[in-house]
């Protein structure tokens, strides 16, 4: 327990060491610690943002899928309708076509019948004239009685 000038020397050393720490040791380490804290905070915030945007994106993609499904259903319905319509149209067309064909056939039959009837009538007229000739035993003057003959033909 002897006191001497070492005390003063120690006092000086004490302040020099403290000054050195304050100047060269403390600030860079504290700066690095603060920077790391900032980095971590930023990282956490970024992660949070990422999570949010992921949530948003998944919501949006679900929305898109839902919309796509709706559109597909709509398209299917529309296609169904359209095909139905096409079928209906085709049916109508076919009916018209068939009617047309039937009408043509009918007209042709009518014509044929008319022709046959005409031929028949002519034949009957000839037969009638021949009969009449036979009855009258004489030649009917075809030229003299042309009007009469035509009228008979018409009446048959």
């Amino acid at each position: 327990m002897y006191v001497n000038a070492t005390l003063v020397a120690q006092l000086v050393v004490f302040f020099i060491l403290a000054w050195f720490t304050m100047k060269f040791v403390w600030p860079p380490i504290v700066k690095a610690l603060d920077e790391r804290a900032t980095k971590i905070a930023e990282g956490l915030a970024a992660a949070e943002r990422g999570k949010q945007s992921l949530e948003l994106a998944s919501k949006r993609s679900a929305e898109t899928v839902r919309e796509g499904k709706e559109k597909v259903v709509e398209l299917l319905v529309q296609a169904e309708k359209q095909s139905q319509q096409i079928i209906e149209e085709a049916k109508a067309q076919a009916r018209i076509e068939a009617d047309k064909v039937i009408a043509g056939a009918k007209a042709e039959i009518e014509q044929e019948a008319a022709r046959a009837r005409e031929a028949l009538r002519e034949r009957v007229a000839d037969l009638a004239i021949a009969g009449a000739e036979k009855i009258l035993r004489r030649e009917v003057d075809a030229k003299a009685h042309a009007d009469l003959l035509a009228q008979i033909k018409q009446d048959l």
């Binding site: 002897y2 006191v3 005390l7 003063v8 120690q10 004490f14």
Partner: peptide
């Protein structure tokens, strides 16, 4: 050493 500690 008392000088050391008292110095501080």
């Amino acid at each position: 050493d008392l000088n050391g500690t008292l110095g501080m």
